[in-house]
Computed example of a mutant assay.
Amino acid sequence: MAGFVDLFVYGTLKRGFANHRAFCSSALRIRTATIVGSLYDLPVGYPAVQIAADSILLKAGQDPARDAGRQRRFRGLAPSAPDAAQELVHGEWIRLPDPPRALPRVDALEGVRPDGRGEYRRALVPAWTEDGPSALWVYWMPRLPPGARHLADGIWPARS
């Protein structure tokens, strides 16, 4: 079992935003990171990412502690750099201790449900960090609500 879990966050869990202190104050490491995907600003005041099915390395399982261990298999992954045609999402790599405690809390915040019918899903995807390539869990939304606004620069909140 891993002693930590690595997440890619792009919204309210980032430093300085509404949910960071409550869910990420125990972070062991925070670095800038980027993934391939499309970022949207939702009318409810938080963002969503959509990712291509072929970029998913692993889908979240029923056991968060096991998921943290499964993530370890992808350490040292060296994804090729994204090509110029791919959209990028910019955020943070956050390493949290105690996956059996931390991951269910974040899953609940993001509306991840074991039956797969929640607002978000959690998947392991390739990421590029200031420390090199990695595989990070990301919360992504399969169906966008009406009024979702595409953020072509891949940064939330939208810059005016």
Score class of each variant (00 low, 15 high):
Met1Glu: 09
Ala2Tyr: 01
Val5Gln: 02
Phe8Ile: 04
Tyr10Asn: 05
Gly11Asn: 00
Gly11His: 02
Gly11Ile: 01
Gly11Phe: 01
Thr12Pro: 07
Lys14Val: 02
Arg15Asn: 09
Gly16Phe: 08
Gly16Thr: 08
Asn19Tyr: 12
His20Pro: 02
Arg21Cys: 00
Arg21Glu: 15
Ala22Met: 10
Phe23Gln: 05
Ser25Ile: 02
Ile30Arg: 07
Ala33Glu: 00
Val36Pro: 00
Leu39Cys: 07
Leu39His: 00
Tyr40His: 14
Asp41Met: 02
Pro43Trp: 07
Pro43Ser: 12
Val44Ala: 15
Val44Gln: 15
Gly45Pro: 06
Tyr46Thr: 09
Pro47Gly: 07
Pro47Val: 06
Val49His: 00
Val49Leu: 08
Val49Gly: 04
Ala52Leu: 13
Leu58Gly: 04
Leu58Ser: 10
Lys59Leu: 10
Lys59Gly: 13
Gln62Thr: 14
Gln62Asn: 13
Asp63Gln: 10
Asp63Val: 09
Ala65Thr: 06
Asp67Gly: 03
Gln71Leu: 11
Arg72Gly: 06
Leu77Lys: 05
Ala78Gln: 15
Pro79Arg: 01
Ser80Met: 11
Pro82Ile: 03
Pro82Tyr: 07
Asp83His: 14
Asp83Ser: 14
Ala85Asp: 13
Ala85Lys: 14
Ala85Ser: 15
Ala85Glu: 09
Glu87Gln: 14
Glu87Arg: 13
Glu87Asp: 14
Leu88His: 06
Leu88Lys: 08
Val89His: 06
Val89Thr: 08
His90Ser: 10
His90Ala: 11
Glu92Val: 03
Arg95Asn: 05
Arg95Met: 12
Arg95Gln: 14
Arg95Cys: 09
Asp98Tyr: 02
Asp98Phe: 07
Pro100Thr: 09
Leu103Val: 06
Leu103Ala: 03
Arg105Lys: 15
Val106Gln: 05
Val106Thr: 01
Asp107Glu: 08
Ala108Met: 09
Leu109Arg: 08
Glu110Asp: 05
Glu110His: 06
Glu110Trp: 04
Val112Ala: 00
Val112Ile: 14
Arg113Val: 04
Arg113Met: 12
Pro114Gln: 08
Asp115Asn: 14
Gly116Pro: 06
Arg117Leu: 13
Gly118Thr: 04
Glu119Ile: 08
Tyr120Pro: 05
Arg122Trp: 10
Arg122Pro: 00
Arg122Tyr: 07
Ala123Leu: 10
Ala123Glu: 14
Ala123Thr: 12
Leu124Lys: 05
Leu124Pro: 02
Leu124Gln: 03
Leu124Ser: 10
Pro126Thr: 10
Ala127Cys: 11
Ala127Ile: 01
Trp128Met: 02
Thr129Glu: 03
Glu130Asp: 15
Glu130Leu: 11
Gly132Phe: 03
Gly132Leu: 06
Gly132Ser: 06
Pro133Leu: 01
Pro133Lys: 02
Pro133Ser: 04
Ala135His: 05
Leu136Gly: 02
Leu136Ile: 12
Met141Gln: 06
Pro142Met: 04
Pro142Asp: 07
Pro142Val: 01
Arg143Pro: 00
Arg143Asp: 12
Arg143Cys: 05
Pro145Glu: 05
Pro145His: 07
Ala148Lys: 02
Arg149Gly: 03
His150Asp: 02
Leu151Trp: 00
Leu151Ile: 12
Ala152Asp: 12
Ala152Ile: 02
Ala152Gly: 08
Pro157Lys: 10
Arg159Val: 09
